[in-house]
Design a protein around this nucleic acid. Structure first.
Lengths: 189, 189
DNA sequence: CGTCTATTTGAATGTACTCAAAAGCGGTGG
DNA sequence: CCACCGCTTTTGAGTACATTCAAATAGACG
């Protein structure tokens, strides 16, 4: 059991005894992926929820013209999946790719559903995580509808400096919802 | 106990026995507000979470120049608060006002926290609600960064036809993040 | 009926995109 | 270690999208 990994992170929100830790450790599979690997492809069934122990990823939607919109980045200690498709067990709206070598923990929909029903602490954990995730997305919506591109860019840099270091300008542009050319001209300002 | 109200809605997600229903019914206060009443004012402490039994509301952020950005509307069976400020028990980023006469059920932060700790079914309920809310906001972010104003307007109409009937053009514009003048010209198309 | 606000319209300006091309940069192979 | 390749980033010109401001029109409400 990695003392720096998923178990320690879970314990930031709920307490676990040794038995529970051992049990959870068996439920989350360990998966390792090379840089530039697509772990979920848009259109496919989304079966797993991932926790990032090492590395970084990007979730994005591609439209019919090839334009990509980045929904989220994930780095160490973040959870990532296409939550819409995972929740409804339907075709993914998003693709998720590694930006570097990644060490992930994964849990399938069925195993998670069973875990939630049998371990109230996990309902609490995910209630807390989803509550924070909801607040985060709502604040991003507020940024999107109320701030200028320049303000949103600066906000992104100050809010996620660790992510900003790992991703390209083009990927940040697709997260902000502008073209790379325009983001470049905003920086020039 | 209103058979059409909050208890029935909760039971769409978790089962409740008579005792639990009676208990919950006492925890959610009944509040009635006139049209155009501000139930939460930006800058004030956000103490309560509301459930809408009747009526409709709007949550919005006003900036220093008086420009308003609408974060959400709520109609019958929706929950509403400034979730950021409620979660952290800090000053509200949002104001919430009634759009018509409203009948609400409310629960304070402290009572809810205690309820979550003592009644696992409520952790499950709110886990489910926050999960859906997270997905909804994430899809809205995707719309915001990937669609044109016209597409987002049509999406809003088809996704929330009941809301569209109750709100002004100006309020829809502030939800989409454009000026009322521009929304008007988009409709003219 | 009169007042207040929402909606529409239009002109002028600023913001953002498209397309094309040049410049920068990292990785790979010779 | 250097040269080349592919991709990212920058730059610029032309066009489309969106805002501001002002004024006219339409609707809602007391």
């Amino acid at each position: 059991m990695n003392p720096e990994g998923i178990l320690l992170n879970i314990q930031k929100h709920v307490s676990l005894n040794e038995e529970e830790k051992a049990h959870l450790d068996t439920l989350f599979a360990i998966e390792s992926f090379a840089k530039q690997h697509t772990i979920l492809e848009q259109g496919r069934l989304c079966r797993k929820l991932f926790y990032v122990e090492k590395g970084s990823l990007r979730a994005f939607n591609g439209n019919q013209y090839g334009k990509e919109s980045t929904i989220m980045f994930a780095i160490k200690d973040w959870w990532i999946t296409d939550m819409y498709a995972f929740t409804n067990q339907t075709k993914a709206l998003l693709s998720i790719e590694t930006l570097e070598h990644c060490l992930l923990r994964s849990i399938s929909f069925d195993v998670l559903e069973h875990l939630l029903l049998t371990m109230p602490k996990m309902e609490r954990l995910f209630r807390i995580l989803f509550q924070k995730a909801y607040v985060r997305e709502q604040l991003r919506v507020l940024d999107n509808i109320s701030l200028s591109t320049e303000e949103r860019y600066l906000q992104f840099l100050s809010k996620y400096p660790q992510i900003a270091k790992k991703v390209t300008q083009k990927q940040i542009a697709s997260y902000l919802g502008v073209t790379p050319e325009f983001l470049s001209s905003v920086k020039r300002k």
